[in-house]
Each structure stands twice: as C-alpha cells, then as structure tokens.
Design a binder for these strands. Structure first.
Length: 206
DNA sequence: GAGTAGATCCTCT
DNA sequence: GAGGATCTACTCA
C-alpha cells in the first residue's frame, strides 16, 4: 500500500460518539473494505443517523433487543449489516457507548478504488452513478452481507479513513430520513446528511 | 420525466 | 404469517 501519512484510519474511540455526531462527521470520509485480497473504497456522500431507544425508526426503539439487533448494543465501532425486503443488504456503523444502541446507515458513496470489482459484484457493465447510490447498492458494490455484522471497523478488513479532504460547509445538506414513514413524527427528524448535487446521493437532486 | 408494482427472504409476533 | 431503514423496470405522458 502507498503513503500512510496522509490517510488516517478513524480510531475506535470515534465511533463511541453519538450517532448524530458520527453521521455529521462521515460525509467526505473514505469507506474501505478489503476482502479476499480485493480492496474497494469510496468517499461517503450520504448517511442517516438512528439514535436508539427514543427513535421510532431505529430497530432498537424502546430498548428492543433481539438476536438481530443485539449488535447495536455493543460499543460503537462495529458493523451492523442486515437484509431488507429480502433483497438488499444495508450497512450500518454501530455508534455510541456500550448499551446505547445507536447506528449510522451508509446510504451513498462515490467509488474510488476497485471499481472493476464493484462492477463484477453488481453485475453492471458501466460505472455510472447507480453503482453505489442507495444503501442496497453500496453494500453490493463493497461485497458486504449479513455475515459481516460485528466486524470491527478499526481492523484491516473494514475501516473508514480521513484523507484530509473536506467538503465545503454549505454543501452539506440535511433532510428527513428516507423510507421511514412508519415512524410517525420521528420520520420528520432531520437525521439525513448528504452532499448537495453529488450524483451518488439517492433521492431527488437539490 | 413521473408514478407504480414486483421482487424475495429473514426476522419477530 | 406479515412486513420491512430498497431498487429496478416498466408504464404512461
């Protein structure tokens, strides 16, 4: 691998912060997976925060604890991947201290390394903006599935880097989350953070 | 370009 | 046994 200096892997302590703080800090960072010698990475451009027991949209709302959601109660810094609609794998970062079940859903990245492998995994023939737009596509392109739940995010197989790049403050958009209408009033909470105008952000451009 | 239906399977009641 | 933190293709205009 190349120069290490400019690329700083985010430490486990970063993920112990609240989901909202982590979510605000993630756009612009680089998500990397290294599986079977295949390295793929992309710059995060869209995330959503799920703030735990008080958040109707979160799997852990009301302190619900099941075999599936158990990993959300771990200390921040591990992956939570689960299957949605029987088709899509959704990749989350568990955040907050132990027994505070929060998470951040990664919804969109801008591909950087391993684009050829992403095409193979997704079965696409050209690298257009649909390659890694939307949480289902992100997981597919990075080769993530439910078995990757509990993988440490400060290890070698999966991590997030800070390469010093920063989006301008005015490019960071905030909006309600997507697909959580069932959550009542909580569906309106401004917990989605995205880069305005970026083609890898799901939903309508603004 | 906008709206809608169908895919598909694991998890919890 | 129901339903879900979604995506794509197809229709109609």
């Amino acid at each position: 691998m190349g120069l290490k200096k400019a690329f700083k892997k985010l430490p486990a302590s970063f993920y112990r912060l609240d989901a909202l703080e982590v979510a605000r800090a993630l756009p612009g960072r680089i998500l990397v997976t290294d599986r079977d010698g295949i390295r793929t990475s992309g710059r995060i451009v869209e995330v959503e925060a799920y703030t735990g027991v008080n958040d109707r949209a979160a799997h852990s709302f009301g302190g619900r604890r099941t075999p599936r959601t158990e990993v959300m109660y771990a200390a921040g810094g591990v992956a939570y991947v689960y299957l949605c609609y029987g088709i899509h794998h959704l990749f989350n970062v568990v955040t907050g201290p132990e027994d505070n079940p929060q998470a951040v859903l990664i919804r969109g990245i801008e591909p950087l390394e391993g684009i050829t492998d992403m095409l193979l995994r997704t079965g696409k023939t050209k690298a257009d903006s649909t390659l890694t737009r939307g949480p289902g596509n992100v997981s597919r392109a990075l080769g993530l599935h439910t078995a990757d739940t509990r993988t440490a995010l400060d290890g070698d197989r999966m991590f997030i880097m800070d390469d010093g790049f920063r989006y301008a403050d005015q490019l960071l958009g905030v909006s309600p989350r997507i697909g959580v209408d069932y959550a009542g009033e909580d569906a309106q909470l401004p917990y989605r953070f995205y880069i305005k105008g970026n083609p890898y952000v799901s939903g309508k451009p603004r």
